[in-house]
Design a protein around this nucleic acid. Structure first.
Ligand SMILES: NC(=O)c1ccc[n+]([C@@H]2O[C@H](COP(=O)([O-])OP(=O)(O)OC[C@H]3O[C@@H](n4cnc5c(N)ncnc54)[C@H](O)[C@@H]3O)[C@@H](O)[C@H]2O)c1
Ligand SMILES: NC(=O)c1ccc[n+]([C@@H]2O[C@H](COP(=O)([O-])OP(=O)(O)OC[C@H]3O[C@@H](n4cnc5c(N)ncnc54)[C@H](O)[C@@H]3O)[C@@H](O)[C@H]2O)c1
Lengths: 200, 200
DNA sequence: GATTTTTTGTGAAAAAAAGTACAAAAAATG
DNA sequence: CATTTTTTGTACTTTTTTTCACAAAAAATC
């Protein structure tokens, strides 16, 4: 079991590795990657060694191989389906985002109570939340994004969990109560912004 | 100096405290707050004691007082101005969000290269990035949100730093290189989503 | 091909974070 | 008003994370 902290660091390394690749490099040393990612070279090496990811002594690490290994952690080889509940500002921004598809994450459908969201303007089909169960089962979706108002968050979450969802990315400013086998990742944009005021 | 980890926990406590307040409570015990926030009661007490935030033995903590103290950490008493650079999907979602204003965070202006964004449809004025300097100085803005494409992120950041910005919330999937005195907080939505696939 | 240089990989040490345990305060009870 | 109960506040312990340090591997140089 990899800690969430280390998981996040692998995703950070991936961003840096893509940058190096764009710049034409095929190899990196731990200190290159560390400097770019803002961590020490030892940290980089230890993280990789933890997963048995090998470099070559004096030759460094092969970027393509590292990216492959990192993507494997996040199951990029298999089906990566997602649904979005709440097609307001955030839900639509995510649905429109091309970067997910590029990265083999497929947004299967959106759900919203408001029928005005069911138009063809959205690039994904949008349904009434009553259809969550059907779609989740049909595609075997395991991951959902919650982007509904605060007041609806827990209720929507319960419905998702009942449908078989096992991982949730939650944008509502509430703490969700879920069974053991469900993982919740929180994105609280207000908190992210507000934490900055401590430093100003 | 409070660590970023603890800062985030205070903001988490605040979410829970607001919930308790909505439910009509005026006091909490450390174990109430801990349970709601998903941390131990000892952690809660330790965090508060770290900042000299006092409860009363047997009486617990006064919610209003806790909220006041937490808000003080984030300077809610003073001016909290923000600008947004990049008024695309994310930039507009943030600009439209009422929750910031409710929380005394004032989004002064948005900036975008694309003149079609300068319309009155947005609830904040949107200007060409050349006006960043002027607006930042006029309002004494210290905090900025970067929501431009990857390729423009570093350039925009440099411009902001040159204008006197000291804290940045960055949505671009890149690591920003900034001077010592500037704090960057990263929101990488793809990483947040993707980290979930480890658990599915 | 022996020697030097560079860089990985990983135990050991240090630092940071979280959890334990309990004395002290204060409200509630008898 | 003495005793019991409850809950905070914080020293102490344990666990987790990070850094240090250096042997081993491999490329480069002599
Ligand atoms: N937009 C931001 O910048 C921002 C910033 C901070 C936090 N947030 C939080 O993110 C969440 C989403 O924000 P937003 O701006 O996209 O909100 P929004 O109001 O634009 O959209 C919410 C959508 O959810 C739908 N909805 C409501 N109840 C529902 C239900 N039970 N089932 C399905 N759909 C339902 C609404 O019809 C609406 O379309 C909110 O909880 C908000 O507090 C947003
Ligand atoms: N939308 C999402 O769900 C999502 C998900 C993951 C990551 N992101 C990242 O967030 C960032 C913003 O995403 P988005 O979907 O809002 O993008 P977007 O393309 O909708 O908007 C970007 C805006 O920035 C403007 N812009 C470009 N260069 C600029 C410059 N130099 N100065 C000022 N403005 C400039 C463009 O005109 C555009 O309006 C991107 O870096 C993207 O990779 C977005």
């Amino acid at each position: 079991m990899i800690s969430h902290k280390i998981l996040k660091r692998f995703l950070l390394y991936r961003i840096c590795l893509h940058k190096f690749q764009r710049l034409g490099f095929t190899k990196v040393f731990s200190y290159n990657l560390g400097e770019e990612a803002g961590v020490t070279a030892e940290q980089v090496r230890k993280d990789f060694s933890l997963l048995g990811i090998k470099g070559s002594k004096r030759g460094g690490y092969d970027i393509e191989y590292l990216l492959l290994e990192i993507n494997n952690i996040f199951k990029q080889n298999g089906e990566r389906y997602v649904i979005i509940v709440g097609m307001g500002n955030i839900g639509q921004a995510l649905a429109n985002y091309q970067g997910f598809r590029e990265n083999k994450i497929i947004t299967v459908a959106g759900f919203d109570l408001d029928p005005s969201k069911y138009t063809r303007k959205n690039i994904i089909p949008v349904h009434h939340p009553d259809k969550i169960d059907e779609i989740v089962r049909e595609y075997g979706v395991k991951t959902a994004i919650i982007a509904v108002p605060e007041a609806a968050g827990q209720e929507v979450c319960d419905r998702l969990v009942a449908s078989g969802i096992r991982a949730v990315l939650n944008f509502s400013p509430i703490i969700l109560h879920v069974p053991e086998h469900v993982t919740v990742n929180y994105v609280n944009l207000r908190n992210e912004l507000e934490s900055l005021f401590y430093y100003t």
